[in-house]
């Protein structure tokens, strides 16, 4: 290892005196291990929140509801207020100049703009 890297101590050592179980003991090298963690979705599923009284706060029921006021539609490119909607690209746009721009955009850019507001076509 290079000396400047060692001096900066950026590399985490394998062994720590203060640990009872070292990393290399817990996850021995060269041993295949499957995914050993649960994603948040799986964690929530396993919690069985539906079995608990609804007035008891839990991770799921403290989430905010959808907004009461409809969101202002803004132009996907410029951020201006967008009175128009292009049915072909599904982008919202503010004026004729922006329309010209969106019609000349390559389709992957269109999809990326749509993905910004989670409206892109997702192929599964």
């Amino acid at each position: 290892m290079e000396t400047d890297v060692l001096e900066a101590e950026i590399v985490l050592p394998n062994h720590f005196n203060f640990k009872r179980v070292q990393m290399y003991e817990k996850y021995p090298k060269g041993q295949a291990r499957g995914r050993h963690w649960k994603h948040l979705k799986q964690i929530i599923q396993a919690e069985n929140f539906q079995n608990y009284p609804p007035n008891e706060p839990n991770y799921v029921n403290i989430e905010s509801p959808p907004p009461m006021h409809p969101c202002k539609r803004i132009c996907d490119i410029t951020g201006f207020e967008a009175p128009y909607f292009d049915p072909r690209t599904k982008l919202r746009y503010a004026n004729a100049e922006v329309f010209k721009v969106i019609r000349s955009l390559p389709s992957d850019y269109v999809q990326r703009y749509l993905a910004l507001r989670n409206a892109a076509v997702v192929l599964k």
């Binding site: 985490l12 720590f16 005196n17 203060f18 640990k19 990393m23 050993h36 994603h39």
Partner: peptide
């Protein structure tokens, strides 16, 4: 949710705090 990563982070944190005894 990923406690392996959490462990690396805690290792680094305790190490930089100066921990050197046999346990925390």
């Amino acid at each position: 949710y990923q406690f392996e990563i959490m462990e690396y982070i805690l290792d680094f944190g305790f190490d930089r705090l100066g921990a050197d005894q046999s346990q925390i």
